[in-house]
Design a protein around this nucleic acid. Sequence first.
DNA 1: GCCGGATTACGAAAGACTTCGTAACACGGT
DNA 2: ACCGTGTTACGAAGTCTTTCGTAATCCGGC
Lengths: 132, 132
Amino acid sequence: MARQKLSRPTDGELAILRVLWERGPSTVREVQEVMSKRDADRRDVGYTTVLKLLQIMTDKGFVDRDESSRSHIYQVRQSEDETQRQLVDDLLERAFGGSTARLVLQALHARKAGKGELDEIRRLLDDFEGGR
Amino acid sequence: MARQKLSRPTDGELAILRVLWERGPSTVREVQEVMSKRDADRRDVGYTTVLKLLQIMTDKGFVDRDESSRSHIYQVRQSEDETQRQLVDDLLERAFGGSTARLVLQALHARKAGKGELDEIRRLLDDFEGGR
DNA sequence: GCCGGATTACGAAAGACTTCGTAACACGGT
DNA sequence: ACCGTGTTACGAAGTCTTTCGTAATCCGGC
């Protein structure tokens, strides 16, 4: 019963997607436990909350559900890359007037990227320009 | 009657912020007209909707209101840079596990950045590394 | 001083998001 | 076959966001 084609995941949904990207296909309990440990500081999310979100995400088409075993197993439908690309593209449009350079500039300022990261970014630029 | 210190602007709020960044201090009508022209394709936002959003944004502390003239004049409180930095930092945290390099990579892929933009980004990297 | 047009203020409706209580269901052990 | 535990299903509450109808207010012109 898929509802819509593509919208961006909400904050709660994204938190779950990150767990699924990291762990691969998982049950509700597995997701919930990782989230409880990860955000030990924040108030942790209840089991049925995670379940509900996963049900909604199934409905939206963000994840697939394998119901063959007692505990259903959820897995992402879109790769981490695709989702991140979509999110950054969306932000680019909504807040940066489409200027990639400007977004990169602000990203560098937001987290004082260290030398290692700067070098890595340079390498990305070379690769990107080379393989076009 | 400020309500909160810092949260990210919603989509509707961001659309208005972009107009204020571009035009500088503006009245409701000015903002509304720019938005109507800009999003000629999308259903345009009504006057009282823009007004309401600006009132809410005043409440949240995103904008200041000058009530000295008949038509109130709104202006941003936080610079475009600061806001964009906050947004990109937020996305970095929520979706990229804090990896700036990964975000840049996906940004490059999302919009096939042209040679011009790539060069500009390289220049940014040089400046950034030089002036630390 | 009054009227009309524009502006602001107020509140409500509709939808999305998050949370959780509770019921229904499934399964393993005894 | 029954019970207890764990899982899924359902629905509702509370908040936030966007939208807009309507009332109240202001001001310039007559």
